[in-house]
Nucleic acid binder design. Sequence first.
DNA 1: AAGTGGTCTAGACCACACC
DNA 2: GTGTGGTCTAGACCACTTA
Lengths: 254, 254
Amino acid sequence: MSTAGGRARTEQPIERSLHQRIRADIEDRILSGAWSPGHRIPFEHELMAQYGCARMTVNRVLSSLVEAGLIERRRRAGSFVRRPVGQSAVLRIPDVKAEVLARGETYRYELLSRARRRATREDRGRIAVAAGAPVLALLCRHVAEDRPYALEDRLIALDSVPEAAAADFAAELPGTWLLRHVPWHEAEHTIVAAGADAAIAEKLAVPVGTACLVIERRTWRSDQPITAVRVWYPGDRQKLVARFTPSTDAGAGR
Amino acid sequence: MSTAGGRARTEQPIERSLHQRIRADIEDRILSGAWSPGHRIPFEHELMAQYGCARMTVNRVLSSLVEAGLIERRRRAGSFVRRPVGQSAVLRIPDVKAEVLARGETYRYELLSRARRRATREDRGRIAVAAGAPVLALLCRHVAEDRPYALEDRLIALDSVPEAAAADFAAELPGTWLLRHVPWHEAEHTIVAAGADAAIAEKLAVPVGTACLVIERRTWRSDQPITAVRVWYPGDRQKLVARFTPSTDAGAGR
DNA sequence: AAGTGGTCTAGACCACACC
DNA sequence: GTGTGGTCTAGACCACTTA
């Protein structure tokens, strides 16, 4: 072909380059959940046909998705949507259950309370749902070796995740349940230190005023709020580690 | 050329592909400081000549370095090493001074103590220097509106940063000074909540036992320890925010 | 054996910025 | 204008994996 490079520009003169458009298409389908983890995305030759472009172009897109950690590729098999990693490679938010079990301690989880209600003013400060939208409020306690380990105060937006209303959160950790039902969401963590007030202290079986690490995580999926959770860890027992290399934050790298 | 694709494999049969090798070369030079921020890296045609490869290959490498946030590229001008961003795009470690000034409050900084010594056992637990290696120990207080705001307890490895011995840390924040002298380092943050003990409480002018957010940052440059700093924030006054999108953690993305 | 991804080439046109 | 990066092509060889 003689008009090699100019083609894409000529055909999509609006804004994005072809590979950006392809990447956005695939990324949207993954992040929206249309292609859930494990889904095989089209082969390179299929994408070539679909977008009418060279293999190098789709290959470049798929490679960048690998770097971003969104997909994995296996020869002869194809390219697959990855299961989202813990939360992030950089900030290791502790998976309480896994860590406790890893230390060889017993782990138990208790659902202290569960309430379905229309979002109160305070709820709406934590999770950006519409006024009066239904939410599920959960209070859970993680117990290691029969000692309270962490307290989890969670709201779930039922408009976004209606199936949560019927889930049995006494049997399955809300976090685990949500990860199975709503993979690939965006998250924001806020981390503060606070002294335990009377109510918290009692449930954690620590003195009032004990310094706690409070991690609040709010998650969305394409601008729809999913959940807001506030976890109280007695401070000396839990720490967060975040590690940054200037480059290679996300992915395979080298 | 007839033996198109096989070339790199044939010439570097050991392990890495050509573009990985080129990327590693450039990345090492940036992270080691050989090419400091602002440095213009070779033009694509120069790299082509140097590695004897096609332009597409070096272009791919440079594009990935842009995505990783290591370089920026300007048409007609060239490609340049970027200045490292604050700390990380994901975890916003507060720049105390900037935040205080942004609120329109007065800011002051006090160097409470400065000592040059051979690393003690405790020092070596914080910063992995050799036994007896010289370290600079600083204790600083950040003051907003004449109220103590945060306490900074820092060690600097003088073997790695000998110029620090002569720096005037009463005049310039150690963090700022280090960023100017040692850009592009690897960092690890550990975040815990702790109650202020008597010494800390007195210097922060808060009651003993006040819940504080303690952020410890340790930084290296190619496995050489640079500094270890522990910052105490009275808990209610400071919070950390970390935001993750599953994809596009690092870079330009979209 | 066949089909997938991994990598590379040699060339092309374009946009853009600076001269 | 001139030279940089931005993008794309059409084809190639290879390695690996699975059938």
